[in-house]
Structure formats: structure tokens, C-alpha cells
Amino acid sequence: MPTFHDFKATSIDGAEVDLASYDGSVVLVVNTASQCGFTPQYASLQRVHEAYADQGFAVLGFPCDQFGGQEPGTESDIAAFCEKNYGVTFPMFGKVDVNGPDSHPVFAWLRSEQSGMLGNKIRWNFTKFLIGRDGLVVSRYGSTTAPGKIRPDIEAALSR
């Protein structure tokens, strides 16, 4: 049975990242977009990342342009936007598809592990998946769930 740690992804600067490097960490995977009504969540994602980073926690942002064309920029545009407007320091990855035949393997796996309101499809930007230290999905959260509301689940996962 695969876990999150069995995958690789391309960072926003083009480097291949072996997600096994997060083995033993708690991770919040988020499909992001720079021109979405939920884009201000970047600020609270950054706060949550900072609050728990020293305990083995990371937010991982995966830009996606599948929902209303709300992530039209290049990877360098996205990185600059996130840093300038929200002070993002958590790891960001290259643009991915999260649904459909070209979905990134991480998101195909996440969807198969934890379905949501639309079955295993992701409904919109800023869907979040909490991954435990063992690489298994702990929970899935919709776009409207503010990152701060996930803190109790992050703390529980960190204590395991």
C-alpha cells in the first residue's frame, strides 16, 4: 500500500523532491491558486506552518489552474506573488492538475485515500489533506475550512 512518502514532485524552482524526505513529519498538502477568493488563506497557511515547523510540520503548496483559470502565471510568477503578498516560506511546487487523467500522482493517491463531497474529485482550490508522520492521510478539508481551524488536528497528529 503506497504512502505519501512513495511519491516525488517538482518544486516551484524545478528541482525534483522525493517526498520521502517528509517521512516522520506531519504535512498539510494544499492545492493553491493566486487569483481565487480563497487566496488570502496563504497568510494563515504561513502562520500554521511557522507555528508548528519546529515540531516536524510543513505546509506544501501545489498551484493548480484547473478551477476557473485562477492560477495563470508561471512558476516564477507564482513564487514571487506568494512571497511578496503573503510572505510564504513553506515549500511550493510546480503547477499540477489535481483532477482528471493528467492529475499529479500525489493528488490521484490523495483523492483515492480520502474522498470528499464530489466523491474522489477535488471540488475547488485550497482543498487540504493532512498527512500523518507515517505518510497516511489523516483527514481532508474543503476550501472553506480555514487553516487555523485545522490546528487541533495538526496538534493531534504531531503528538502521535
Rank of each mutant, 00 (worst) to 15 (best):
P2Y: 02
P2E: 02
H5L: 04
H5N: 13
F7Q: 04
K8T: 15
K8S: 14
K8Q: 13
I12N: 03
G14S: 07
G14H: 05
G24H: 08
G24K: 07
S25A: 15
V26C: 04
L28P: 10
V29D: 01
S34M: 01
Q35R: 14
F38W: 14
F38C: 02
P40L: 05
Q41N: 09
Q41R: 05
L45M: 12
R47M: 06
A51K: 13
Y52E: 13
A53W: 01
D54C: 01
F57R: 06
A58D: 11
V59C: 11
L60Y: 14
L60H: 14
C64F: 10
D65R: 07
Q66R: 11
Q66A: 07
Q70N: 10
I78Y: 00
A79R: 13
F81H: 11
C82Y: 02
C82M: 08
K84R: 14
N85E: 08
G87H: 00
F93I: 03
N99S: 13
G100P: 06
P105G: 01
V106N: 11
F107T: 05
A108T: 15
S112N: 15
E113G: 05
E113Y: 01
Q114N: 07
I122S: 02
W124A: 02
N125R: 05
T127A: 12
F129T: 06
F129M: 05
L130C: 10
G132Q: 02
D134M: 04
G135N: 00
L136W: 11
L136R: 15
Y141L: 05
G142V: 00
T144F: 12
T145F: 09
T145I: 15
A146L: 12
A146R: 14
K149T: 12
R151V: 15
A157S: 09
L158P: 04
R160G: 14
